[in-house]
Nucleic acid binder design. Structure first.
Length: 854
RNA sequence: GCCGGGAUGGCGAAAUUGGCAGACGCAGCGGACUUAAAAUCCGCAGGGCCCAAAAGGCCUGUGGGGGUUCGAUUCCCCCUCCCGGCACCA
């Protein structure tokens, strides 16, 4: 029987034995054991001549189990940490637990487990999950925020803030979540509801609270956003909006007649003082302090105001204050517009907010949408004072459509200021107000001071005392920490649970030794996470939060990685804390993190994973079914890390197949005892061998470039898959000895190195299989040789009038004229060009030829 | 309303500087191996049309419409939809 002709690379490789199946569980448990026995494996060097690299993933709340979002977050960070180790850096890669918070109390109520016990057992479980997933953390630096060793420094910082006047107590309206039974910071109110209970409307309550003066840093927090080039634009924009800086002018309008306790003038805030000659009324927020004076003798008016207040409150609670129907009441009183010298009516309106600006505005109907609507409704005077500048000097400026809110304009009807261009007018008119003592330029912020008091148990006790004689007294530093008592009864009713622990509450005043009462509120848990990453640098320090010199070595964080949901809360608080610590001389950096990366959410079937939708994928199950490497690799492969990832179970099966494919190739081809295995790779290679070598170097280049630049790990993994595919295509050549052992050794070693940051278990197993005994974690990252990565032949697409007509193969070093000639000579090109004239020949080096014909 | 990010096959996605659209993977189809299946290996595959079939060829295609260019997923203008943030912010 004659030899059957076989197409290349087909039947000869069919039906390979299947006893090379990759048993991920066996291999992973083997390495898991080895890694457990060497806790120093991932330890950062305390001091080092190597360059440092601090890579940090946001610490989790110990809810009980990791979810896929965690796995994704840590897989990104772990790949980066491993890559940096392989590149010779002294890497700090720590992990900890943001372990104070309300869920522990809820669990305590639900199943009578003390919060501490519940929290610690959750930590134990999640830590075991992290270890099983193979994340390379330096556990010797573990930080657990609910331990006194940690929270004593929260208290210490609080005392420092208090000394600086940056922590203060005030009675104020606060956001109250009835479900949490505690106060929330402004940042924790989402659409009028609690950030933890999305259907629970946040109420407003009047309470004495501790505040941190974050507004002292408002301007710097805003300005320094420009320095954060390594942060996503999105996060910077969100913070900018949140800080909400607005430049404007304060102007006093004097009351016309009798004056009550709230004073004799109304101070308004405006960004458009240039329009003040058009201010035909003054509008007060219903909760403005002057309102009670103005309504004192008029119960009827008072009742109407109460109505406005309750409307506003309801709208705020519903979160649709923007939709409220604008209306108001005239007070019967007038105030003096200091620019015009005329009295204007004082109104109270439901669209004026007490918590922005001064709670009072000047109403300029001609130049503001809302004021216009309001003036129309109540027939108030509308006075045009700014007209647009026409582009055509010949054209007489027509009356603009009202309201005219455009910025480019010239003042009219504005006394001595008429004729000024609007921006110039703002400067001159606020100066005029200041010179005459009835106003000044000013800056307001949307950002408010950070209310940190929480009427809850499971948090850092605020180290303050109340003494009948000495008033508010800080706990002396030497008495820290104020220990959170254990074994207490927790309920969600009746204020702070600590208030019912008499041995906690009753103490003595350090000043007068008389009886004193402890503060029973605890701190917002965002205090804990505002500085935890400094503690990692010196986690066991028991006489300071950390050693400044050590922090200086490690800071700023080189790469911080976490979810975008922390773009405002955590990331603005920790920037504030850093600036405060810098000002007290503890650190020298202005910002905590040089680069920030926010990864996308993990979703399934188009929706965020949630128990109610039943689309939750459990990491434990994935690890049990496919192995840790597969779960990690898939979370990097399925989408670029900054985008949402749509989890598909069949997708992770593909990754499992890929890992098996790599394994099987090496089982067949790892022959470290063969002669020639360790020989240098010869320079003269067969075309098949060259192809393998070229693909290897191209792959190294792609993966390395991605680590340095855009972090599209999904394409890194694709590139490695392509390399493996081309190794499979080369198996015929391998069996025919066309590929030297030395090259096979080289390509396999480097393939393992490329895989090491992404799939550490398999990589370690294969490293051993290749006869390597050195520590893979710190094996040098492979370098690519641009010469070896170069193609010898180029496939040049040939277009005619921009349409692809053919592809010609030319030697890589061919010159332009040779390539263009080859292209023109090509049969398909000739057909396409036939009967026409080539008017232009475009050659893009190495890319394509385009012939323009007529 | 303002700001930011998106939209590419049946699906997840790729195209890094304006140069072969759909790499890689999933699902699918065909084949090899097998008594059979699983596993594995090899191959095909955007859509439409021409051709008996194959080989091949032609047209078309990156949310929609216009523009710049020899050439546009990429740059510019307008519009639609989706996600996120802020919002009677004075």
């Amino acid at each position: 029987m004659p030899q059957q002709e076989q197409p290349e690379g087909s039947a000869t490789v069919a039906g390979r034995p299947n006893d090379e199946r990759y048993d991920a569980q066996r291999v992973e448990s083997k390495w898991f054991e080895r890694w457990q026995n060497d806790p120093s494996l991932y330890a950062a060097e305390p001091t080092s001549t190597q360059k440092k690299y601090y890579v940090l993933e946001m610490l989790p709340y110990p809810s009980g189990a990791l979810h896929m979002g965690h796995v994704r977050n840590y897989s990104i960070g772990d790949a980066l940490a491993r890559y940096m180790w392989m590149n010779g850096y002294n890497v700090l890669h720590p992990m900890g637990w943001d372990s104070f918070g309300l869920p522990a109390e809820n669990a305590a109520i639900a199943n009578h487990t003390p919060p501490r016990q519940w929290t610690l057992s959750n930590i134990a479980n999640m830590k075991a999950q992290m270890k099983r997933l193979g994340f390379a953390y330096d556990w010797s630096r573990e930080v657990t925020t609910c331990f006194p060793e940690y929270y004593r420094w929260n208290q210490w910082f609080f005392l420092k803030l208090y000394e600086q006047g940056l922590a203060y107590r005030k009675n104020s309206k606060v956001n109250w979540c009835p479900k949490c039974a505690t106060v929330l910071a402004n940042e924790q109110v989402v659409n009028g509801c609690c950030w933890r209970h999305e259907d629970t409307i946040v109420e407003q309550r009047e309470l004495e609270q501790w505040f941190l003066r974050i507004t002292k840093y408002a301007d710097e927090l805003l300005r320094d956003l420009d320095k954060l080039g390594g942060w996503p634009e999105k996060v910077r924009v969100m913070q900018r909006n949140w800080i909400g800086r607005s430049e404007g002018t304060l102007v006093d309008f004097k009351l016309d007649g009798p004056v009550g306790p709230a004073g004799s003038k109304i101070t308004v805030f405006t960004t458009r003082v240039d329009t003040i000659y058009g201010a035909t009324s003054v509008q007060l927020a219903p909760e403005h302090p002057l309102v009670s004076d103005l309504t004192a003798s008029n119960p009827d008016l008072r009742a109407k105001v109460e109505q406005l207040i309750s409307e506003q409150r309801k709208a705020k609670e519903r979160g649709d204050i923007g939709e409220i129907e604008k209306h108001g009441v005239f007070t019967g009183r007038y105030a003096l517009n200091p620019f015009t010298g005329k009295n204007v009516p004082i109104w109270i309106a439901n669209y004026i907010l007490m918590d922005y600006g001064t709670g009072a505005i000047m109403s300029v109907p001609a130049h503001d949408e809302r004021d216009y609507e309001f003036a129309k409704k109540y027939n108030l005077e509308i006075r045009l004072v700014v007209i647009p500048i026409s582009n055509d000097p010949e054209e007489t400026v027509a009356e603009p459509a009202l309201p005219y809110v455009g910025h480019e304009g010239v003042l009219i009807n504005s006394g001595p200021f008429s004729g000024l261009e609007y921006s110039d007018a703002i400067i001159k008119m606020s100066a005029h107000a200041e010179n005459n003592g009835f106003g000044k330029p000013t800056v307001t912020y949307r950002l408010k001071d950070w209310g940190i008091s929480r009427q809850r148990y499971w948090g850092t006790p605020i180290p303050m005392l109340y003494c009948e004689k000495d008033g508010i007294v800080p706990v002396p530093e030497r008495d820290l920490p104020v220990i959170l008592p254990e074994d207490i009864e927790i309920t969600l009713a009746g204020g702070s649970p600590l208030g019912r622990v008499t041995e906690f509450v009753h103490t003595t005043c350090p000043k007068c030794c008389g009886p004193a009462r402890r503060e029973t509120d605890t701190m917002d848990t965002f205090v804990d996470s505002s500085w935890y990453f400094y503690r990692y640098t010196d986690a066991r320090n028991d006489h300071a939060p950390f050693d400044s010199r050590i922090a200086q070595y490690w800071f700023p964080i080189d790469q911080y990685i976490g979810g975008v949901e922390h773009a405002i809360l955590h990331l603005i608080y920790s920037r504030f804390w850093t600036k405060f610590m810098r000002d007290m001389g503890l650190i020298t950096n202005d910002e905590p993190a040089e680069r920030l990366f926010t990864q996308g959410m993990v979703i399934k079937d188009g929706a965020k994973m949630s128990k109610s939708l039943g689309n939750v994928v459990s990491p434990d199950e994935m690890v049990a079914r496919y192995g840790a490497d597969a779960a990690r690799l898939y979370s990097l492969f399925a989408a670029p890390p900054d985008r949402d990832l749509d989890w598909q179970d069949s997708g992770i099966e593909g990754i499992q197949r890929f890992l098996g494919r790599v394994y099987r190739f090496m089982v067949r081809n790892a022959k470290p005892n063969d002669a020639g295995w360790n020989a240098p790779v010869p320079a003269n290679l067969s075309p098949a061998a060259r192809a393998v070598q070229r693909k290897l170097h191209q792959t190294i280049r792609r993966v390395t470039d991605d680590f340095q630049g855009r972090w599209h790990f999904n394409t890194c993994v694709s590139a490695i898959m392509e390399l493996v595919n081309s190794l499979y295509s080369a198996e015929d050549a391998i069996s025919q000895n066309q590929i030297p052992q030395s090259l096979l050794a080289d390509v396999q070693r480097k393939l393992v190195l490329l895989l090491a940051p992404f799939a550490p278990y398999l990589a370690h197993e294969l490293w051993e299989m290749l006869g390597e005994s050195g520590n893979l974690l710190k094996a040098p990252w492979p370098k690519y040789d641009p010469e070896l990565a170069k193609e010898e032949e180029l496939e040049i697409p040939v277009q005619v009038n921009g349409k692809l007509r053919s592809i010609v193969v030319v030697p890589a070093d061919a010159g332009e004229s040779a390539i263009v000639e080859t292209a023109i000579a090509d049969e398909k090109v000739t057909t396409a060009v036939a009967g026409k004239q080539i008017v232009k020949k475009i050659y893009v080096p190495g890319k394509l030829v385009n012939l323009v014909v007529k």
